[in-house]
Every structure is written in structure tokens, then in C-alpha cells.
Amino acid sequence: MSGRVLVGVKRVIDYAVKIRVKPDNSGIVTDGVKHSMNPFCEIAIEEAVKLKEKKLIKEVVAVSCGPQQSQETIRTALAMGADRGIHVEVTGKDYEALGPLQVSKIMAALAKKEDAQLIILGKQAIDDDCNQTGQMTAALLDWPQGTFASEVALEGDKVKVVREIDGGLETIKINTPAVVTADLRLNTPRYATLPNIMKAKKKKIANMKPADLGVDLTSRLEVLRVDEPPQRQAGVKVETVDDLVAKLREAGTI
């Protein structure tokens, strides 16, 4: 395989930020909160760039759907080694309702337009925790899927994927074109170096709208409210192991 890889990169609230629920329970406070690239998307970019460095593919295209600021996320991907970016601009109400189904439609349309041979996505985003976009993009394209990948090897016109499953690992071989979603152990993403950040500024980001791709953004999911989870109360400190065992026995836990 010597083609083009599309990688989806999502802008999310930084993993280290403690999120806050809006007082009116309509969602999460995002204004003035640090955002970064979804960590699983970083792994996806790293994998694509590695394939390019091994000369197994020709071009890595980073795609992000969202408002103007999504371009920063694309810049990060470019600094990590992606060749160019595509920003699919989604704003306002459309952005609030943007979910995995709509993003999958955008990714599938782009895959056709760009004649991609492989799409690599993170297995889930750390904001909505949906874990759907890769599977749905594969479905819409009728491509096979290698989800939760911890090892990816290109073998001729097929991809061998080692997958993280509940009891251990599983190996599958899928035809290309295909969709792969990255799990945590696939690789360790690189840090963008200053020279690469500078170089990334010269790389091109194309801008388009979902309508340019013929994608309808209608969503039939409605978030009624967002709540704080019930808080667990801290219990007691025990002084010794014997104390602990006694307390657990008293509670009938052991």
C-alpha cells in the first residue's frame, strides 16, 4: 500500500482539566478552559506519521471538524508530522449537536474525495467517551475495521491489527481500504519540536463546510441535561493493617 492516510483529530478539553458542569445543567463549561488534541488522536497521528517514515504510505492528512479553533489542533498534527490539514468548519448550534454519526459522514465523504487507503482515528474522545466514530465511518464506507489497535502492520494490500479485547489480545487481518482506531498502547506520541512547529506553519490547511461534502448535520439525539455525578464521601483513616482488617470484618466485607 502506498497511498494516503486520513487521520481525525478532535479538539477537546485538556485531559488534566477538572471539568465543571454548567449551573443550568445544559452542559459543561468550555469557555476559557484549556483545550488540546484528544490523546487517542495523538496516538493516531503518531501511527500515521510512523507509517510514512517507514515509506509505507505517501501522505498523512489531518482532519478536524469544529469551530475556528480546531485549526490549532490541526496545526499540532502538522507539527507532529502530518503533511496537510483539512478543517471542516462546524459552528454554533451545529457544533453543539455534532456527534459521531455526523463526523463519520464527514470522514467517509472525505475518504472518497481524497481517495484514502486508510483512516486512522482514536478509539474514543475523552469528552463524550462515545467510542463510535471509527466503527461508523467504516460502516458508511463498507470498509473493514480494526478497532482498539495495539499493533498495526501493513502487509501488501492488507492490514494486520492486534486488538485490545476484554480478556487479552486478538489478531485480525483486514482488506484495505480500512479504518483503524488507536488504543493506548499502539505507540507513544512524539512531542512536536520547535523546528517542526515552525515548519508546520507553512503547511496547508484547506477549509470547507459539511455542505461542500454533501453532509447533512441533522442530529436526532438531544441532551436533556448534564449533571454532576453523586459524590462519594471520604471515609475514615485507619492506623494499622489490623485495624483495617477488623473494620472490614465488622462491615462484613471480608
Binding site: K18, I19, D127, D128, D129, V223, D227, E228, P229
Partner: peptide, 14 residues
């Protein structure tokens, strides 16, 4: 749950 269990989202599916 969303955000690693730090919020609960009630979703109506139409």
C-alpha cells in the same frame, strides 16, 4: 457518563 465519569448526560434518542 461523559468526561471519564465526571458528568452524567441524560440523552433523549429521537
Amino acid at each position: 457518563t461523559i468526561y471519564a465519569g465526571n458528568a452524567l448526560s441524560t440523552v433523549k434518542c429521537n
